[in-house]
Simulated assay, not measured.
Amino acid sequence: MKVCRWIPEDGLGIEHLALRQEGEIILAQGAVIGGRHGEDYGAFYSIRCDARWRVRHALIEVAGGGRLELHADGEGHWQDGDGAPIAQLAGCIDIDLTASCFTNTLPIRRLHRVLDERQVVDVAWVWIPDLKVERAKQAYTRLGADMYRFESVGRDFQADLQVDADGLVLRYPGLFKRVS
């Protein structure tokens, strides 16, 4: 098991992650505490991936707030917690939680071999704390052994992420830095 913590570079908050592999399952469990637009939040997440780092299940619970459960087949088909298809997420393989540094690891690990060239992916983007889900286009490019460029396509945002050997972020300039 690997345990990591990140703090915001500006402001208060923390993310705590416990990551482990159990056979063909990769399980990430974490908690995020922070604030956005003047609203403080605390949330727990559990993300289960298959051995190829494709999201298969996600559960996000906001303390004193809502709960979001998503199921995916690893081929781009998503369902809500009740089994209803989510058409707007068709084709998405990864999930990105707005309050989490960890979720950048998912496409980095899944696409590792092809990231020498820019790869554009669609992700299920979950806003915390309101748990709104939308489709977002992102791009990743390997810049070096421990550096990846992240782009939020169409939102005019990019950052060069420094990562460890496991693809876990060490520094996300302007947003997060790892403290353990």
Rank of each mutant, 00 (worst) to 15 (best):
G83L: 09
Q138G: 01
G81D: 00
L175E: 15
W53F: 13
L115I: 14
Y172N: 06
E15K: 11
C49Y: 02
D164G: 08
T103H: 05
H16Q: 12
V114F: 09
L89N: 02
T103A: 05
R36F: 06
N104A: 06
G76P: 00
P107G: 12
L68K: 06
V163R: 07
A124C: 11
W78R: 06
A139K: 11
G30H: 03
V62F: 04
D96C: 12
E24L: 03
G167Q: 09
E117S: 12
V62Q: 02
N104M: 07
E69W: 03
D73I: 02
A51G: 07
V179I: 14
D156M: 10
I14V: 11
C4S: 15
A84S: 04
V32L: 08
D50Q: 04
L143W: 04
L168K: 11
L19R: 03
V114I: 14
R5W: 06
Y45C: 00
G11S: 04
E24M: 04
Y41E: 01
L115P: 15
G42V: 03
V123N: 07
E134A: 13
L175Y: 15
A31G: 01
Q79E: 11
H37Y: 10
D156Q: 13
Y172S: 05
E39N: 04
R20L: 10
D96K: 12
R5H: 06
A90P: 00
L19T: 10
I60K: 02
G13I: 01
I93T: 15
R56V: 10
I47D: 03
I25P: 00
G76A: 05
G65R: 10
D116F: 05
G13E: 06
Y41A: 02
R110K: 09
W125I: 14
D40R: 05
I33P: 00
G30C: 03
A139W: 09
L68W: 03
M1Y: 09
A28G: 09
Y148F: 12
G66Y: 15
V126K: 14
H112Y: 11
K137E: 12
G66A: 08
E24S: 09
V153F: 07
E24H: 06
E24N: 07
L143V: 01
D50G: 10
G167T: 12
D122P: 01
M147W: 04
L89M: 02
E117G: 11
L111E: 13
R178C: 00
D80Q: 02
V133N: 07
I93F: 13
D160F: 05
V179K: 13
G65P: 02
E39V: 11
V3L: 01
G64D: 10
Q29N: 06
D156V: 14
A58V: 07
K2A: 09
F102G: 05
G74E: 08
I7Q: 14
A28W: 00
G38E: 01
Q21T: 15
T98V: 09
D50I: 01
G154P: 10
A159N: 11
G167M: 03
Q162H: 11
A90I: 03
A43N: 01
P173T: 14
G91L: 02
A159Q: 13
V32Q: 11
S46D: 03
S180K: 13
A18V: 07
R135L: 14
V126R: 15
H37E: 13
A136K: 15
L111M: 11
V32E: 10
E117R: 15
Q138C: 02
C49S: 08
I86F: 03
G174S: 10
R149V: 05
E69V: 06
P173C: 10
V123S: 09
L106C: 04
